[in-house]
Write a protein that binds this DNA or RNA. Structure first.
Lengths: 200, 200
DNA sequence: TGCACTTAGGACCACACGGTCCTATGATCC
DNA sequence: GGATCATAGGACCGTGTGGTCCTAAGTGCA
């Protein structure tokens, strides 16, 4: 068995949604890219377009959690360094793709959050899990962090700034601006590190 | 002469777009809310829906620049205090509106930036002008800021974080999170203030 | 052999949407 | 009084879209 048809549909839809957003991706587009025989073939696997959207969103985050966030868990690299690498990886990805993407979720967030309650809930868990990963990393850094650091809050801050930066870079198409914000973000995290504590 | 019909159309469209986004606002919706007699009445004033969208975006920012950003220019208040009040005003606005709005521009950015080059360009100038206002404020603070502060960069950072925070609060509907990010943002700006320089 | 699932393919529907066109009635102003 | 603009109202169209329905052929499994 190669990839199942269902997976093929999801992959096709995912790439289309990444390119043009959810609303502007039609079922017919998906059928064409997945090389299905027709509508009935599609509706054999999904009850509605929304169901497909939810599934794609889920997979999208699985991928992000496994690949994108993986570096946050890398045990052989120091926590702070890992965070820096993670930030850099997002910047690099966005730059590579010509600033077309924004964030995988930021886009979907604005697009879907208010149209469909199911989407919104899914998105909250996405951000929650992302925040949890960052919190875990900050927890590891604990010995070198100032005592009053609220890691839950700081992790939200990091995500918000990254999302905002990606969104703005999508509008501005400016690599420099994106790098600047990323650098400032690192700097901000740095201000939470206690002085006189070396990291290695 | 009360408000002209053209203005009435723009106002109606603006409120609809704020509620549901541009794509999900149909010309018929606008006609209904503006109480026009029909399609031809609308097309008497606008050549297309896109032309209307551009106009609304323009007005939206005029309003934001005049009212929302006004506090940044308030001469009787200290610069840093002004910045704090500005941040608080965005938080308050978003909270009042039940986290439905996000940012007036962040929404449009994700929605329109990749669909229409004209929209994207307009959005860049919007963010540029916003950034300029913040830069002017930071310039006023200059005496009390550290020497290496890059005000252009910092102003972009502030905007990105605010936009990201508003977007996330739209997904999470969490007032606490929004306040936390706002507080951290103030704190970050604070780290650029030279020590031993009192502000008044 | 027979059942269940998958692929194939096409006809069809209802609806929303942006946009055009045409006619007719007031109002305003030179 | 004629030209121009604003309001009124409705018919109409092309297109894209999500979704239904129906038929038929192939495939694997018990």
């Amino acid at each position: 068995m190669t990839t199942s048809t269902r997976d093929r549909i999801i992959d096709s839809a995912a790439s289309l949604i990444a390119e043009r957003g959810f609303k502007r991706t039609s079922v017919d587009d998906v059928i064409a890219r997945a090389e299905l025989s027709g509508k009935s073939h599609f509706y054999h696997y999904f009850r509605s377009k929304d169901e497909l959207g939810l599934e794609v969103l889920g997979r999208q985050f699985e991928g992000f959690a496994e690949r994108g966030l993986a570096i946050l868990r890398e045990p052989m690299i120091e926590p702070l360094e890992r965070l820096h690498l993670f930030i850099d990886s997002l910047v690099a990805l966005q730059t590579e793709r010509g600033f077309r993407i924004g964030s995988p979720f930021g886009n979907l967030a604005s697009e879907m959050a208010d149209m469909h309650e199911g989407f919104r809930e899914r998105l909250t868990t996405v951000f929650d899990r992302w925040a949890k990963q960052l919190q875990a990393l900050l927890w590891e850094m604990r010995p070198s962090l100032a005592d009053d650091v609220d890691s839950a809050r700081l992790s939200r801050f990091i995500i918000a700034t990254l999302e905002g930066a990606l969104m703005m870079s999508k509008v501005n198409r400016d690599a420099e601006m994106l790098r600047g914000i990323a650098a400032d973000l690192k700097r901000f995290v740095g201000t939470h590190v206690r002085e006189g504590v070396s990291s290695t």
